[in-house]
């Protein structure tokens, strides 16, 4: 039996959000909330069992997502959401585990975990909200900041080369890779739906406006201006070669579903391997399907 919440507010997402924690901390014009909306939409459309879906976040603005979704949700340490999620998934394989975090958390401090979870084809969906900077701490340069963009720790502009996250994820072994912007909400929803319906390591990058810091420091205007930029510069190329999807400062944004391939996920590979090698001595681990009790 679900606990009955206060019934007055008619927020369409109240079944999925912790209404007792709203209002959230995100700035006006921030794109994280829209990605959360897409996520909620995808869950609804997929008719996901909300009891068997967990969200793990690291630290940062996007790291707060875990605190707002009314699912089993874990707000962990900076950079370690993926290994935490790995333990969670392996300990309870019948639960779908979604890592919801930011670019700094996932590809900066947690970059090593990102590539290794992708390499293992761990059955996780990683939603990476990329706003090109460390926002929670005040707009510092990140591993995703485009060349020449200004950041508080790159006050004369950034001269470090940035990660192209889809390329990184694919090279490391991710079996589903997509990129969208905060403008492509329906596409984001669809990608999340697809990823939730498959097994293996899925990586969805969503480029979002950070109005308060990245946009202000770079004099890019407000949220609307950034959405206009996405509108003008985004080009959908499904199956694009991920080597070609780098992002230049205020340059072209190639988006789309870049990678989708079948490959046994970690647990399936483990069970298959041990069954082959050890035969009857092997204690088959975990329930393979997401079936309900």
């Amino acid at each position: 039996m679900k606990k009955v919440e206060k019934r007055e507010p008619k927020n369409p997402m109240e079944n999925i959000l912790r209404m007792d924690r709203i209002p959230h901390i995100w700035c006006a014009g921030c794109g994280i909330g829209t990605v959360v909306t897409s996520f909620a939409e995808a869950i609804k459309k997929n008719k996901e069992d909300l009891d068997k879906l967990a969200v793990v976040s690291g630290i940062g603005c996007t790291g707060r997502v875990a605190g707002y979704v009314k699912l089993d949700s874990f707000h962990t340490t900076h950079g370690r959401a993926i290994p935490f999620a790995t333990g969670l998934k392996l300990a309870k394989p019948d639960t779908k585990v979604v890592v919801f975090s930011g670019d700094g958390d996932l590809s900066g401090i947690g970059g090593n975990h990102l590539i290794h979870a992708a390499r293992r084809n761990m059955d996780l969906l990683v939603i990476c909200v990329n706003n090109f900077n460390y926002a929670m701490t005040g707009g510092q340069v990140a591993s995703t900041t485009p060349l020449t963009a200004n950041a508080s720790t790159a006050p004369y502009g950034n001269y470090e080369y940035a990660f192209s996250l889809p390329y990184l994820a694919e090279a490391a072994g991710a079996t589903y890779v997509a990129r969208w912007t905060a403008l492509h909400l329906r596409r984001v929803t669809k990608s999340i739906q697809e990823a939730l319906n498959r097994k293996g390591f899925s990586f969805i990058e969503v480029i979002t406006p950070c109005v308060t810091l990245y946009a202000r420091r770079n004099r890019l205007g407000d949220g609307l201006n950034l959405l206009k930029y996405y509108y003008e510069q985004a080009e959908i190329i499904h199956g694009a070669d991920t080597r070609t999807v780098d992002i230049d400062y205020q340059g072209k944004l190639i988006v789309g579903k870049f990678v989708e391939k079948d490959k046994p996920d970690y647990l399936t590979a483990m069970n298959n391997h041990f069954t082959n090698v050890l035969g009857d001595d092997y204690q088959l681990y975990g329930r393979i399907n997401h079936e309900k009790d």
């Binding site: 370690r80 999620a85 998934k89 300990a91 975990h113």
Partner: peptide, 19 residues
């Protein structure tokens, strides 16, 4: 795991997973 940071994090996840 890929390092000891990951090891410890995976343990905490695994305990929340019931192990």
């Amino acid at each position: 795991m890929e390092d000891e940071l990951a090891s410890m994090a995976s343990l905490i996840g695994a305990v929340w997973g019931g192990q």
